[in-house]
């Protein structure tokens, strides 16, 4: 714990919040979205998957604030519940990707030599696949489900995390405190994951915020293509897909969930962007 509080990166992150308005706005937005997702059962005026065929394609009104879809389901309720899918997929895939990618990057940077070339070569190959298409291919092969989406999106985002973790590790391994640890007879594993990792966690967190935005966008895109969590579960991407069929007579069906996706991605990007400015030494100096 002491390595963490002594880390200037964390105080830089804290000061980013004090000075950077963009990250504040992003932070508040994302907290509101998380609250909406958590409180969906309380906030939602109706059951998100209950159909009412007599009330289909109703425009926004006093009865249903955002209208109803082609099955007569309440759109506000579906957007609130859809937030859960987006956030869960985004968060879980980023956790997996940052754990695996972060560990690979630290190992590559710390051990160096042949191991480094092997790991980073593998990462180069992964980067040769377009993110969305790799996700699409994996989901098409293993089938669409919440768990498979998380796995597929996590796989597409391991490589960037490995790169982010490797660069600072290369610098850190030459520092005195690692030298001292070696002199004390600490194992490589302990040096890598107890002494180096805490120093790069803030980089991983910042990039995690930005890549979570990317993960949510990928999930929405896959759902839009028809490879999301299967119906009748409400997901933003599949709501846009269903609404797109009524683009001429009921445009709000596609527009409202689109805005939900957009606001969430913007919020995460604003938060991550402000935080990155704060920890980037080049920008801090300016």
């Amino acid at each position: 714990m002491s390595t963490r509080t002594a880390n200037p990166m964390w105080s830089a992150l804290a000061s980013a919040f004090r000075t950077n308005k963009t990250s504040w706005v992003g932070f508040v937005m994302i907290v509101l979205i998380i609250l909406a997702a958590l409180l969906a059962p309380v906030l939602a005026p109706a059951d998100p998957i209950e159909q009412d065929i007599l009330r289909k394609l109703e425009p926004p009104s006093a009865e249903s604030i955002l209208g109803t879809d082609s099955f007569g389901r309440d759109i506000l309720s579906r957007i609130l519940y859809g937030a859960r899918i987006s956030l869960v997929v985004g968060l879980a895939s980023i956790l997996i990707a940052s754990l695996i990618g972060g560990a690979l990057g630290v190992i590559a940077g710390y051990v160096g030599g042949r191991v480094d070339r092997l790991i980073m070569g593998a990462m180069d190959v992964m980067l040769a696949f377009p993110t969305l298409l790799l996700g699409l291919m994996i989901v098409a092969m293993i089938g669409p489900s919440l768990q498979n989406l998380i796995i597929a999106i996590a796989l597409t985002e391991i490589a960037p995390f490995a790169r982010i973790a490797r660069a600072p590790t290369l610098l850190l391994r030459e520092r005195e405190f690692i030298e001292a640890g070696r002199a004390l007879g600490f194992s490589d594993l302990r040096l890598m994951f107890v002494h180096i990792l805490p120093n790069i966690v803030s980089d991983l967190v910042v990039m995690g915020t930005l890549w979570m935005a990317q993960a949510i966008r990928t999930e929405a895109s896959l759902s839009f293509i028809g490879l999301g969590v299967p119906p009748p579960t409400a997901t933003w991407g599949s709501m846009v897909r269903e609404g797109f069929e009524h683009i001429l007579d009921a445009p709000w069906l596609a527009v409202l969930p689109s805005l939900a996706i957009l606001l969430t991605v913007i919020a995460l990007n604003m938060l991550g962007d402000g935080l990155r400015d704060a920890i980037d030494p080049k920008l801090r100096r300016e």
Partner: peptide, 28 residues
């Protein structure tokens, strides 16, 4: 920052609604 947050299908749908459905400048 807003621009790079757009999933391509979201911006596509908004452009389609504005310029093809409303203004009719382009085919749907």
């Amino acid at each position: 920052l807003a621009g790079l947050s757009f999933p391509a299908f979201v911006s596509g749908i908004l452009l389609l609604l504005a310029f093809a459905v409303q203004l009719r400048w382009f085919p749907v």
